[in-house]
């Protein structure tokens, strides 16, 4: 059986366990041998994006120690998955690190590209709008990017379209950044909050009940704005939708 190491980003472990549980259950439902190594922490991206990639050796070593033994590593965050893919390094075992990085997948791409999933037993009778995280989109190419002249496709939409009752609504600006940006969200608070507000407005105006994404960090940022404005629109990680087994009264966190 294919072994899968589950990599849960630090902030999801601490603040959004339900999204992580949904990811685990979703993968377990695919008859995979899924293991969550208990000694994992963080991909190191907050350090590296702040200019301190030289301080990420500890994170890298932990990642390699925790995940080297798996056929695949799956992570329900495009941003963290991209960071590992692009920057996982090791002082004395770079070849192993590079090989491991190539086995790391964000959840959506794992489902569409590796498992090649054709159907889902899920139901989510709501209006949903998709927020593309920039790293999932422009880093991992989960969908066609609005800037490029290339054929249309969308891996997350393909999955969401397999969910019973789910209605995808369209946005004015299909893939503009929400302004989270890691430490950008506090060091550039004014612009970050304004970007978030504009993004959230687009979703709300579209009639969306739930904003979903393959990145919980963008959702955390947008959730903060929605709640401050007492909006009825909620955020939900894509794993929670895909894992919403025909249960009639699912009440996701958010």
């Amino acid at each position: 059986m294919m072994t899968v190491g589950l990599f849960i980003p630090c902030y999801m472990d601490q603040l959004y366990p339900n999204a992580a549980i949904a990811t685990l259950e979703l993968l377990e439902g695919l008859s995979l041998d899924v293991v969550y190594p208990l000694h994992q922490t963080c991909c190191g991206q907050p350090l590296a994006n702040s200019g301190f990639s030289h301080l990420t050796q500890g994170c890298n070593a932990l990642f390699i120690e925790n995940f080297s033994r798996f056929d695949y590593v799956v992570c329900p965050s495009g941003s963290c998955a991209l960071h590992i893919k692009e920057h996982l390094s090791s002082l004395n075992q770079q070849e192993d690190a590079t090989a491991l990085a190539s086995r790391v997948y964000e959840l959506v791409e794992f489902l569409t590209d590796v498992i090649k999933i054709q159907a889902l037993d899920a139901s989510f009778p709501h209006k949903v709008s998709l927020h593309h995280s920039c790293h999932s989109l422009r880093g991992l190419y989960l969908a066609q990017m609005s800037e490029l002249s290339s054929p249309t496709f969308s891996k997350p939409n393909d999955l969401l379209n397999m969910v019973d009752g789910l209605e995808l609504v369209k946005l004015e600006r299909s893939d503009e950044c929400c302004g989270f940006g890691g430490t950008f969200c506090v060091f550039e608070e004014a612009v970050s909050a304004k970007m978030g507000k504009d993004r959230v407005d687009d979703h709300v105006v579209s009639g969306s009940e739930y904003i979903t994404s393959s990145d919980m960090s963008c959702l955390m940022h947008m959730e903060g704005i929605l709640k401050r404005n007492h909006s009825a629109t909620k955020v939900i990680h894509i794993a929670e939708i895909l894992n919403s087994k025909s249960a009639p009264n699912i009440e996701p966190k958010g």
């Binding site: 849960i8 472990d13 601490q14 992580a20 909050a193 955390m220």
Partner: peptide, 14 residues
């Protein structure tokens, strides 16, 4: 300044 902090759950995923 413009956002609510996330609610912290009792239990982590771990």
């Amino acid at each position: 300044d413009h956002r609510e902090l996330p609610e912290a759950p009792k239990q982590t995923f771990a």
